[in-house]
């Protein structure tokens, strides 16, 4: 299986405080990698290094290189000459708390496409429908696409955010504790969705729930004390890889 993402000596700090140092690791194509570790060790920050979202946080600074294979070509995406907007469309991110924008369900999914200048109603409708189907949400919302997205349940909102991220046809999906604010049933739906996704994409998930890690992960990494290592105790259960 080919390497999809390569981190070379990646260090990160907020002001003068180092979060992690010299992390070098490969993530493979069609892999579902899970990152575990205590709170405050920089798991979410590590995800933000992959799509350069850290650049929007004042005082943050990253060193090292991140390579991602996009359209079959390895690209050094940490280089400022690589457009961050292009990167973020190919490396999608889903946050811990569902964050639908204050607009309708339809407009939430259509939003990134409108940003790209797509105005054709039919093509937008098709994109929205496909994305909602991928996120197992279409049947539940097809009759109320023009309602405020914030009226959906927590699980539905999170799947809407996943649909929005998937609508851009990304090659990598990053998920930061996507089920931590959801109940057991809603979390299981999202877990199944993730297992389905990794057949087509590379998926990196930050998770706290040990059971979930065992159900999902191909490989488990532990981020602790500023370094990232394969977690042997949890990886034992990961038989799929």
């Amino acid at each position: 299986m080919g390497v999809k993402i390569r981190l070379e000596k990646v260090s990160f700090r907020y002001g003068t405080r180092f979060v992690f140092q010299d992390i070098s690791v490969d993530f493979h194509e069609h892999e579902l990698a899970v990152i575990v570790g205590p709170s405050g060790q920089g798991k979410s920050t590590l995800l933000m290094c992959l799509n350069r979202l850290w650049e929007e946080i004042p005082g943050a600074r990253m060193e090292g290189k991140v390579w991602i294979t996009l359209d079959g070509q390895p690209r050094c995406v940490s280089d400022p000459s690589f457009p961050a907007t292009t990167l973020r469309r190919r490396v999608a991110m889903v946050f811990q708390t569902p964050n639908p924008l204050p607009m309708t369900i339809f407009n939430n999914v259509a939003f990134p496409h409108k940003l790209l200048g797509v105005r054709d109603r039919n093509s937008l409708e098709e994109t929205v429908r496909k994305a909602l189907m991928k996120a197992y949400l279409w049947d539940e919302v097809k009759d109320r696409l023009h309602e405020d997205a914030r009226h959906l349940s927590g699980g539905q909102q999170q799947r809407l955010c996943i649909a929005r991220a998937l609508s851009l046809d990304p090659e990598v999906v990053l998920l930061d504790e996507p089920t931590s604010s959801l109940d057991e049933k809603a979390a299981r739906v999202i877990e199944n969705l993730l297992l389905d996704l990794k057949r087509r994409l590379t998926v990196i998930v930050v998770s706290h729930a040990t059971d979930q890690v065992r159900r999902l992960a191909d490989r488990v990494f532990r981020l602790q004390d500023g370094s990232l290592r394969l977690d042997p105790s949890l990886s034992l259960f990961c038989v799929r890889y």
Partner: peptide
């Protein structure tokens, strides 16, 4: 909140688009 601030950016919006639309 930071989560709202990062939403559109994580979907490939420019900073000006983020300002204008979110």
């Amino acid at each position: 909140p930071l989560s709202l601030r990062l939403t559109a950016l994580s979907l490939g919006a420019h900073r000006i688009q983020n300002l204008r639309y979110v």
